[in-house]
Each structure stands twice: as structure tokens, then as C-alpha cells.
């Protein structure tokens, strides 16, 4: 591996690491999810600094073409990350459905309560009006007697 390529790989690793850390600080990705991406970043940097690791591993696994090992590793890690994402997606989808269902039920309950409140309000208004009319009727004879007294005084 040439020194130029090594520098490019290491820089790329650090760039990816910086992007992930920035996203984590800005709360755009959770710490646990960020960790899934940080580990491959460190592997990229490690592979850039010590390229002989790849050759040694290729020898251990009897791989004639060392980059194939890197590709295999990359595919496995990607697969695991995608699986983890799908798992989270399924959980969130289930919770989302539950919440939407609860919202639908609560909306219906609010609607029913509003209707009931309206009815109670109109009923109480009718009752108040009835009470006022009754009061008025009971007060009228009193007023008449007062008037009569006033008239007598004059």
C-alpha cells in the first residue's frame, strides 16, 4: 500500500468519525446508534495505519486476495447495521400504530365530552331562564302591593 493511499484512508476514517460525532453532538443520532458507526470508522483508521493487519488476516484465513477480506468485513458490518436499523424500524412502527390508535380514541372521547358539555350548558341555561321567570312571577305580586301602598300614601 502506498503512503498516499494510506493517508487518504486515514483521512477518510477521521472525516467519517467527525461527521458521526457532529451528528451525535447535534442530537441527530443517538449515542447507541452512533456507536454502531464509530466502530467501523476505527477499523478504517486502524486498517490505514497498519495495513499489514489485512495481509496477516488474509494469511490466517488463506485468502489469496487480501482486499476481499476487507470487502467481506465491510459487507458483514453493513448487514448488521441494516438489520439493527430494521429492528428499530419495526419497534417504532408498532409504537407509532399504538399511539395513532390512542389518538383516534382520545379524539372521539373529546368529541363526546364536548357534545355532553354543550348539552349540559344549554340545559343549565334553560334552567336558569326558568328560575328567573319563576322569580319574576313571585316578585310581581309584591311589587303590586308596594305600588298600592305608595298610592295610598300619596
Amino acid at each position: 500500500m502506498t503512503l498516499g493511499l494510506q493517508i487518504i484512508i486515514i483521512s477518510l476514517g477521521f472525516l467519517l468519525l467527525a461527521i458521526i460525532l457532529k451528528a451525535t453532538i447535534q442530537k441527530k443520532i443517538s449515542e447507541s446508534h452512533a456507536l454502531l458507526w464509530i466502530v467501523p470508522c476505527f477499523l478504517i483508521i486502524l486498517g490505514g495505519i497498519f495495513p499489514q493487519i489485512t495481509y496477516s488476516l488474509a494469511e490466517i484465513f488463506h485468502t489469496g486476495y487480501p482486499p476481499a477480506l476487507v470487502f467481506a468485513l465491510a459487507i458483514i458490518i453493513s448487514y448488521l447495521i441494516v438489520f439493527q436499523s430494521f429492528k428499530q424500524l419495526s419497534i417504532l412502527s408498532m409504537r407509532n400504530k399504538e399511539l395513532a390508535s390512542q389518538i383516534a380514541l382520545l379524539t372521539e372521547q373529546v368529541h363526546t365530552l364536548k357534545e355532553e358539555l354543550k348539552e349540559t350548558k344549554s340545559e343549565s341555561l334553560v334552567n336558569q331562564e326558568a328560575a328567573l321567570t319563576k322569580e319574576g312571577q313571585t316578585e310581581t305580586p309584591g311589587e303590586d302591593s308596594n305600588d298600592h301602598e305608595k298610592k295610598e300614601n300619596t
Binding site: 400504530k97 395513532a100 390508535s101 389518538i103 383516534a104 380514541l105 379524539t107 372521539e108
Partner: peptide
């Protein structure tokens, strides 16, 4: 009537 805010499927 109870209305879902968006389509959730038959089971939901």
C-alpha cells in the same frame, strides 16, 4: 365513528 389520523391497516 372513530377515525385514524392516517392509514394503519385492518388489524390496527
Amino acid at each position: 365513528l372513530i377515525s385514524h389520523p392516517y392509514n394503519l391497516g385492518y388489524g390496527a
